[in-house]
């Protein structure tokens, strides 16, 4: 009896093993890259953050010194606040606009492929080119945007990237414009999966377009919306390249964000220990918000 079960189990077990190994071998090339270039540095980060490492020599353990310094660091607080500011506007704006674009371009109409491509284009354009062109558009004295604003009767148009009040809105506008095409694509994919019978049934019940949107589209898109929100949140918190090339954190510190602060401390001032401590804070923020989002999503699903 015992032997028969063993014999009976073995082939299945072997198959399971084979499948597992096969699976591993498929993800291995990617995983090696991830482990060497991302995982190991991330683990090292948690050690370096408690040292005073400056790239050379040995790293001396300094305990919680870096973190106590963080608490009193005014520039860190500015960077954190600016990051939250960017995120708070960038997420809803991008979410709303990309969904609107997706709905608009999900219909059968002439040239839809062209418009979809056009909306996606900013996402694949070089960030440096984007920054240079938008900076010119935003130019306070000679830029087309302010010339337009003056022509419609606004006598004191904003200084955009040269003003500490308007630099952040300018960056948010460009960030939203750049990324909405990508998220539009995700929403389009989500919209395709909604069965048309649901819309038909809703129409038969006499639902208006707005009611159909609220009661069919939104609930059916929930998995997509969740994914987009998580990706947007993480992306907004670690915004870096756009700010670096557009304003370099300025004027003053008005657009300094956490990733740039980490970069400056780590690679410009060579305070890698301190920069690692800031990275950990950024990491904790990202992961805790993502966990909250997962919990909320699960509750809604139930």
């Amino acid at each position: 009896m015992a032997t028969t079960t063993l014999v009976a189990r073995r082939p299945g077990g072997r198959l399971k093993w084979r499948n597992t190994l096969l699976g591993w071998s498929f993800i291995l090339p990617n995983f090696i890259g991830f482990a060497v270039l991302t995982l190991v540095p991330v683990i090292a980060l948690f050690y370096i953050a408690f040292t005073n490492w400056n790239a050379f020599g040995t790293a001396r353990l300094v305990g919680l010194d870096n973190f106590t310094r963080l608490l009193a660091d005014h520039s860190f607080r500015i960077a954190l606040w600016n990051t939250v500011y960017y995120t708070a506007f960038h997420i809803p704006l991008t979410l709303g606009l990309s969904l609107a674009l997706a709905l608009l371009l999900n219909r059968k109409m002439r040239g839809v492929a062209f418009f979809r491509t056009a909306a996606f284009f900013p996402y694949v354009t070089s960030i440096v080119a984007i920054a240079v062109v938008w900076n010119m558009l935003f130019s306070p004295q000679f830029g087309p945007i302010n010339q337009f604003l003056t022509s419609i009767g606004i006598s004191h148009p904003p200084g955009w990237t040269t003003s500490s009040t308007w630099a952040m809105p300018a960056v948010i506008i460009v960030g939203t414009w750049r990324e909405m095409g990508y998220y539009m694509l995700l929403f389009l994919a989500g919209l395709q999966t909604i069965p048309s019978e649901l819309y038909e049934a809703a129409r038969v019940d006499g639902a208006s377009p707005w009611q159909r949107f609220l009661n069919v589209t939104v609930p059916c898109l929930r998995p997509t919306t969740f994914f987009v929100t998580v990706m947007l949140t993480i992306g907004s918190f670690k915004v870096f390249d756009l700010i670096l090339v557009m304003t370099n954190g300025g004027p003053g510190q008005s657009t300094l964000v956490l990733s740039q602060y980490i970069y400056t401390k780590g690679f410009v001032e060579n305070k890698l220990g301190y920069a690692s401590a800031v990275s950990i804070v950024l990491f904790l923020i990202c992961i805790s918000i993502t966990v909250v989002q997962f919990i909320v999503n699960k509750r809604r699903a139930d």
Binding site: G159, T162, S163, S164, T165, N248, G249, G250, P251, G252, Q253, S254, T264, V268, E269, N270
Partner: peptide, 20 residues
Amino acid sequence: TAAIQNILNDMHSSIMSGSK
């Protein structure tokens, strides 16, 4: 030096842009 020059660079952009 490096840290002070970075702070002075922020000062430069905020004064010259008229933000401060």
